[in-house]
Design a protein around this nucleic acid. Structure first.
Length: 201
DNA sequence: CTATGGATGCGCT
DNA sequence: GCGCATCCATAGA
């Protein structure tokens, strides 16, 4: 009989108040660090956001940089919606659209600390290791069951739920991961000391 | 621990 | 055709 893995999360964190859609009607550079520590749930499974990256529409690494296309059109719409795309033909990645309608900026959600729906997350990932469940943009989408069907959805309506953090976290910044353009911009944000990051800062 | 390469869908040139 | 906002298994230090 396999030994049950020891849980890393010491306590079940309480949820903050629900984030309103207007939370995203600000600069992507304000929204991105404010998302660290928030709780992101899809269908009741998810956890605390530990790592994000900002993609501004003037940034060559942003999908919206070259203008609207069928894939990225939701980025050119109102803020507070999801943008899901396929990465490397295999993985899904989820973004939150920010700023005024048409500005086409978004925050890539890169990692979460699992706190809710652990059994479902483990089942979808085919993994027991809590640290590996959602410590990467593709991993967390698989763990939460996010696919293209979850794109262009409002972030304040089921099946998505967002709760504001209850305490101000210490935030670390760094350069973004896995991109080939604008590689030096320090637009990656992380929860200091978290064991649930995709890579060290 | 770090480094490397394969799998894979699809948007865009 | 080319090139990715990735993950994982494997090899080597």
């Amino acid at each position: 009989m396999a030994q049950k893995p020891r849980s890393i999360s010491a306590t079940a964190p309480r949820l903050g108040k629900a984030l309103k859609r207007s939370f995203f009607d600000r600069s992507v550079h304000e929204v991105a660090p404010d998302l660290i520590g928030a709780t992101f749930l899809v269908g009741g499974a998810g956890g605390i956001i530990t790592e994000v990256e900002a993609y501004h529409h003037t940034d060559p690494a942003a999908h919206s940089y070259r203008g609207p296309t069928p894939r990225n059109q939701v980025m050119f719409g109102p803020p507070g919606f999801s943008y899901v795309y396929r990465s490397y033909g295999i993985h899904w990645c989820v973004n939150f659209v920010c700023e005024e309608a048409g500005s086409a900026s978004a925050v890539l959600i890169r990692a979460i600390e699992p706190t809710h729906g652990l059994a479902a997350m483990r089942r979808r990932r085919g993994l027991e290791d809590e640290r590996a469940l959602s410590s990467g943009p593709g991993k967390l989408c698989e763990a939460l069951g996010i696919t293209i069907a979850h794109s262009e959805l409002p972030l304040d309506r089921a099946p998505i739920a967002l709760h504001a953090r209850t305490e101000a976290p210490e935030i670390i910044t760094g350069v973004r991961i896995g991109i080939t353009k604008a590689v030096d911009l320090p637009w990656r944000y992380g929860l200091k000391g978290s064991k649930f990051l995709s890579k060290r800062f």
